[in-house]
Design a protein around this nucleic acid. Structure first.
Lengths: 194, 194, 194, 194
DNA sequence: TATGAATGAGCCTTCATTCAT
DNA sequence: GATGAATGAAGGCTCATTCAT
């Protein structure tokens, strides 16, 4: 009946609600309705949960992006949607995203972290590749490298907003718009892309 | 004899060396050569140390930036130097910067965190203001908001590099160059800035 | 396919290698290539294994003794061989012998322990009986009781040697020689046994 | 107010009463009326307590021996008293003595164990030395080595009696007498010691 | 008989915090 | 202000044992 999934689900839920630090393994097993010892059949510690959670978070993000971004849209609209999606996921899973993003969860599982984000990088990289071929973006752009820059830019500013500027919703939208514009400028969109 | 400073110094040193999680208050007081109880005369907990540490880290960063960036230089050179400085500080204090940057260290001291980064935002904001006045950058740029985007972009990618791509020094330089170019493009530098 | 034997063999092997305390039932079943639950079809706990193990150890010891001691030999030679055998077994199974010998493995299975050593006592007792009849040893000797003294003396000093004096092989031989002489003297061998 | 002593005292008391295995650190601190954490200021684990306990046990044994054995007595009486003393201590602290004697308490603290018994060996060694000088015992006796044999012999048989033959008090006395006689014979006492 | 995933009581250990000196 | 021995709540983790298959 999917105990592993139950653990991951409960963890995400509790981390989201009470914070990572405050969530004890005993809380997780209670929420997942399994025995204390069962946790250790699937994960060796709270930290070793992190890659699995990151994987789910990335899935959520990819799903949201794919849901919004359509092939027919202009690259401008597509990027706007991407920023929008990342902002919304970051809003919902603020602390978790911060943690995933900063890779703080122990240096030991780092290699796994790397793999986890690969699909997002790949997907955006392909998008840029296409746009480049179609001369919609600056020809000097290196798709793969730039995909990482975009993710870094958008996620970090989305975090900033929630950490520092959470005062009003309006501010968030403004920041989001500014980031989008910053991004479009950097990619040379709505220039003549010479 | 500056016990407060001793505590902060030792903390930074130990956090850098052994990681934040692994550093116990007992380690700090040992390193600082003070008694266990003395710690609590200056800080109420390990977490309440964080803003003080962040302050020092920001000072370090500001010092390094100011050391490199000169008034006579073109905005292009200035931004290149800024990226360089942030990359070098991030390299040296990887985990600490990640933590400061993502604000992960407990939500309770968040308000203090906000203030801490202000000088950097301010300083870069002023730089952009000047460049804008002199028409060296895109006129649509909002200096204050953009300052935050720049910091977000540069720090996050610097972190990425140390978390995922740490394989070779060469890769770091490439990424750094790409970020700089991305930034220049976004600001409209070396265009005619109309 | 002899699961009971597999359990005992694996236990002895693991106890010998990793120590008794450090050997978990899960280690034993893994080594014996049986399922966790199967263990309990044969033994009710780790402790209830002990008498079975002791039995095997005693068999090993008896085999080694019988292999060395021949009916044609003088009692002096025979006793020398016995000491030799016990020393060699103790050397090989140091911790196990200590445990068996001191009966430490819980008071609950004590009655079984008693039986286990019986063959050795019996065998030596008979040896002494013969020697006594042939006036080779002191006439005041009570064979059965003395058999126990001999085992106690030899095993305990063999242990001592391995616990304390393990420095050099030479020392072991000296101690062994001394024990043998002590024993011969106690039994009145090479006196006129009047 | 001697927390270290309190811990040792309580440990001995509880080990004696409930057995070593069954005694938890939490039991010890409760009995010693100290906080759980305080235990770890003095000892790193239950095992690391053992040498300290052994030391106390050896003191107890030495005290009892010295109390019984007088300089005016013949060597025969003196040895009888020694056997008596060891039997009585072993009776009282059966499991503890078995553990100390067999050195079972983890191989890690072995070097400390070695030192602990030294005073007893020394003392008996001196006694034998004197007896040898006065030609009361066999001239071939090596005092130091023989001291160890004696301790081994007496303790191991004392243990045997408590482990296997605990049926009646009478049996104990018989065994004790037999051991004494065995010992006297081995040392050549009441011979002409030529 | 055999399996092995699941159980959960219970112990050890850590470590931030206190307080008498 | 400074000390550091003492505290004890809190949680991680183990591992013998069970039981449905």
């Amino acid at each position: 009946m999917g105990k592993r999934e139950a653990i991951i689900d409960s963890s995400i839920h509790l981390f989201k609600t009470n914070g990572i630090e405050n969530t004890k393994i005993s809380d997780i097993v209670k929420d997942a309705q399994i025995a204390q010892g069962t946790f250790y059949l699937y994960f060796s510690s709270k930290l070793s949960l992190m890659p699995a959670i990151a994987e789910v978070m990335v899935e959520i993000m990819m799903k949201r992006i794919k849901n919004e971004v359509q092939t027919g849209q202009t690259i401008e609209v597509q990027l706007t949607k991407i920023v929008e999606s990342i902002y919304s996921v970051t809003e919902e899973y603020s602390e978790l995203m911060a943690m995933i993003y900063s890779g703080l969860a122990s240096t030991e599982h780092l290699k796994e972290w790397e793999t986890v984000y690969a699909p997002v990088y790949e997907w955006i990289s392909n998008l840029l590749e296409d746009a480049k071929t179609n001369k919609k973006i600056r020809q000097s752009i290196e798709p793969h490298r730039t995909a990482k820059l975009i993710i870094g830019l958008v996620e970090s500013t989305a975090e900033q907003v929630h950490l520092y500027d959470y005062k009003d919703k309006h501010e968030i939208e403004n920041q989001q718009t500014a980031v989008t514009q910053f991004l479009l400028d950097a990619l040379g969109i709505s220039d003549n892309n010479s």
